[in-house]
Design a protein around this nucleic acid. Structure first.
Length: 345
DNA sequence: GAAGCGTGGCA
DNA sequence: TTGCCAAGCTT
């Protein structure tokens, strides 16, 4: 079993001397720390950096974010993915504004009750800002800890995470913020998924997997099922004024994002006209064929040019002028289509 | 407890 | 090209 004080000393010394600079490490403002943790969920540091800087510049305070409508906030998340994160964060910040007098709760139970704040984000923010003794167990820590303790439990299972949280509790009684960040930093830079750099590891002498020579076999992670594929016809519909027809999604996937109307490929013209409540002219051959890959599914899309003349469009549909593209939020697949169409036309 | 939820980088 | 991975949460 790991000797707590020696391990912590070695890890924290390394972290103090080697941690990477990040904009959110230059503040203890709980609103900023919280935002960074939400953006960093399932997202790499270098991807987050520009989004974080733009977001806090546009919404520097809880007050500023609370008084902005969702459409404008979503624009600052465009392209970052997992869009429910920003809806939950927006709602949670408004709750802080209204119920907590604009001050982020400093007790873990209140904080984790906010939308989008789970065990990890709670532990991370509460430990970094207030040194609350909570272990922040993310993907990095699951991997690092499975190696340090030479544990071959499936890290994809929730009970493994619970076990690790329990085992790590004694390590976060003091300096929990630095300890949690150091464990994640170690996982991100040294104890990486592939080709970990054990030769540079500050806690190599504490690592049971290294001692056993099985570092490359850990962690054990059950593989996910194969993803589905859906074929879509995407319609790039213009009218006499040169506007483009778009619609706002009301679905779990990409909820609230705008898109060009799209239909599964066996959908009949009649059904499409019924949905659009208008006659429509669609070209016979697609102008673009493209693929968009999500974590859990793939879209194969054929894009057709089409023409439609209809004055009274009702939500979720909308005629968009081309210069409006910069004010509305589109998923990355739609932005790519928009760019390609502009090059063709 | 398992599945759904985005995107970009990398081998 | 394909699959895996990245500071998770919700249902």
């Amino acid at each position: 079993m790991l000797e707590i004080n020696e391990f912590k000393h070695d890890l924290l010394k390394w972290f103090d001397e080697n941690q990477r600079q990040m904009p959110w490490r230059e503040t203890k403002n709980p609103y900023y720390i919280w935002l960074s943790e939400v953006m960093l969920q399932q997202t790499q540091v270098n991807t987050v950096r520009p989004y974080y800087n733009a977001f806090i510049e546009r919404f520097p305070t809880i007050e500023a974010l609370s008084t902005t409508n969702e459409e404008d906030v979503l624009k600052y998340w465009e392209g970052l993915g997992y869009y429910s994160r920003v809806r939950n964060f927006h709602e949670a910040v408004k709750e802080v504004h209204n119920k907590y007098n604009g001050k982020v709760p400093d007790d873990p139970e209140s904080f984790q009750s906010l939308k989008g704040v789970g065990p990890y984000t709670n532990a991370a923010v509460m430990s970094i800002v207030h040194n609350h003794p909570l272990p922040a167990v993310d993907g990095n820590v699951l991997r690092v800890w499975s190696r340090l303790t030479c544990n071959d439990a499936d890290i994809a299972q929730p009970k493994t995470k619970k076990l690790f949280e329990k085992e790590l509790q004694p390590f976060v009684e003091t300096k929990s913020g630095d300890f949690n960040q150091a464990m994640m930093e170690l996982g991100a830079t040294i104890c990486t998924p592939k080709k970990p750099i054990c030769i540079l590891c500050p806690v190599q002498k504490h690592c049971e997997a290294f001692a056993e020579g099985v570092v490359s076999e850990l962690p054990v992670k059950k593989k996910k099922i194969k993803k589905k594929t859906i074929d879509y016809d995407v319609l790039y519909i213009t009218n006499r004024e040169g506007q483009i027809l778009i619609r706002k999604r009301d679905t779990k996937l990409l909820n609230g994002m705008w898109e060009f109307p799209m239909f599964e490929q066996d959908t009949s013209i009649d059904a499409i006209e019924d949905e659009l409540d208008s006659v429509i002219t669609i070209e016979n051959e697609p102008v673009i064929q493209t693929k968009h890959v999500f974590t859990h599914m793939t879209w194969n899309m054929k894009v057709y040019k089409a023409y439609m003349q209809k004055e009274n469009i009702k939500p979720p549909y909308k005629w968009m002028n081309k210069n409006e593209k910069d004010t509305l939020s589109f998923s990355t697949s739609m932005t790519k289509i928009f760019t390609q169409m502009n090059q063709l036309l």
